[in-house]
Amino acid sequence: MSGPTAESARPEAGEGAALAEPVAELSDITRLYRMGEEEVRALDEFSFTFRQGEYWAIMGSSGSGKSTLLNILGCVDRPTVGSYRVRDQEVADLDDDELSTFRGAELGFIFQSYNLIPQLDVLENILMPVMYQDEIPDGIEDRALELAKRVGLGDRLHHRPMQLSGGQQQRVAIARSLINDPALILADEATGNLDSKTANEILELFDELHAEGKTILLVTHEAEVGRRAENILRLKDGNIDSVERGAGRVEASDAE
């Protein structure tokens, strides 16, 4: 277990909330769904701020609103009411095209089922978010190569996803989420499809990223995975159930 090393390497961000820059600010967010006659409030006047360098586990039972929250955080869904700002950019002000570019430039996605494009090789998959940007930065191929090496796939650059194991695919996905140096890394049950050993390797990778100062939001329903994060945000019925911050909370019992 690499828990202790990650703990010690972590920069101080927790207690003094005002210390770090806000990265994602959600204020009074409500998301309504219409299911036939019924109106479902997936999020109900939800407000929260994620700050630079924080590592959060977002937890909650199904129907608690954590998927909706993740969709809104990932800018693939828009709140019915409320404001969501990423690095001072109000997301509601962006039209569909701008929002697409914004996702590609500012967000890193990691999914439960890896979601690599089957007809592209490792390197091309890593480069994917950049390719849809209006301007492709110079030397981006070198950066992709570096990231592939970093996640331990330096010798498999031209393999197709089908030729890789689940853990390897998830590493490609992590490299992909880093290619644009995003403001926010969103991981949705990133270890859900992996065995515990591989899952641990992936979580170690997250610890490393956290140590480097990346902002990571990890959605999970596994308490064990959640415990690896720096902070835990629990949701219930579309709003905050509990917030646990900082060191020492690892031993804290579930507050449900």
């Binding site: 697409s100 996702r103 996605f109 494009i117 849809y132």
Partner: peptide
């Protein structure tokens, strides 16, 4: 469909 979703999430515009 899923591939389209992935591409959209990763920054593809409708025109792409």
């Amino acid at each position: 469909t899923r591939e389209i979703g992935i591409r959209r999430a990763l920054g593809a515009k409708r025109k792409h």
